[in-house]
Simulated assay, not measured.
Amino acid sequence: MPLKLKPPRPGKSPYWSVRGTYLGVAVDRSTKATDRATAAKVLRKIEADIKSGLVSPKGVKTFLDAAVDYMAATGHQEHLAPIVERLGAYAVEAIDQQLIDETAIALKPEAAAATRNRWVYTPISAILKHAGVEQSIRRPKGWRGTPRTDWMTPDQAFRLLEAAEGVDREFAIFLSFLLYTGARLSEGLGLKVDRLDLSEANAYIETSKNGDPYTAYLPPVLVADLANHPRGLGRQGQRVFRFTKCGRIYTLLDKARKAAGPDLAFVGFHTFRHTWATWMRRYGKSDTRGLLETKRWRDAASVRRYEHVVESEEARRADLLPTRNTRKNAK
């Protein structure tokens, strides 16, 4: 039955109450109002909350429920607190494009589209997908941002690793791991000792950003670094590296950068991934398809950004262009 106002009950309660069912939600509560006009406003507010999804029927999964399940399954918590605070009470089925857009603007009013996408759209999409809600979420215009492919030359990378040795031995090995596997920061930090096999020269990355696990090959130089880990590797169930994604790890990188030289000021943790991909193209002779098959990326578009680091066969035809010497020889 629809929601109805019930008058105060003498000797029991001086307040009007609301009873009934609206859109499948059963209601039986006091309005805390002693006059009918105010109670009617409370009734309309209850209806609006139910219609918007702010109040859900019993047994219906809320965004908070979905977020808790997602965090328990993946361990990912980054950027989630303000989103859950705003959307937690909504039924997952009630979260639509308009609500997501409004949430992004409210949480990141001055941010660029790429930042809104990273901090709001992507986490919401991941939680809804994990909850089994198939919804095509439209990202904000310009959300891809401007792809950056800054990378280090061998000389720069080796100077940075050497500088990191002077800052913290384990941190230097961690940077070496990122450099020679192309792993993301979160993948390296989450790596467990029992997922590392130096005899087979590989590391199994269970959770990646694109959702696909992959096995990373460890070249000999990296195997040697890991074999000399200052805390050893006989720590089953523990993480290989003691660091977490907090201010300290960025402070360590900053110290190493400054010690290595001013030309390395541009380096961030993701630069190691770009450097690995660039070196795989330039020195490992991997093409776009080869890089894609490493499972570090899901789509070819993300890999093509590294095509510019290697001269194409057509570009090398510039060697055949006339020069002043060929003109003299022609005479």
Results as ranks from 00 to 15, higher is better:
D28H: 09
V133H: 00
K255Q: 15
G261A: 05
E311F: 00
L292K: 08
R231F: 03
L291A: 09
W297K: 08
V120L: 05
L191Q: 04
E47D: 06
G188H: 10
K45G: 07
E102T: 10
R235D: 06
R317S: 10
Y283T: 11
R36K: 15
V167Y: 06
A330I: 02
V267P: 00
P7M: 15
R19I: 11
N329H: 04
D263I: 05
D28N: 13
R281Q: 03
S30E: 02
R169E: 15
K328F: 01
Q238N: 09
E200Y: 04
R298Q: 13
A40C: 00
D287C: 13
V92P: 05
T275H: 02
P262M: 13
G268V: 12
L5M: 09
G166W: 00
L175Q: 13
G53Q: 09
A112R: 10
A72I: 06
D254W: 00
D212H: 10
F272Q: 09
E110A: 13
G261S: 04
W276M: 10
L87P: 02
A224F: 00
R257T: 06
G166E: 09
R195S: 13
V68W: 01
D96P: 02
K32G: 07
K61R: 15
E170C: 05
A26L: 00
N202C: 14
G166M: 04
V309Y: 05
L80M: 15
H229V: 06
R296A: 08
T115A: 10
A33P: 00
L189P: 05
L218P: 01
V18M: 03
V84P: 08
A112M: 07
G59V: 11
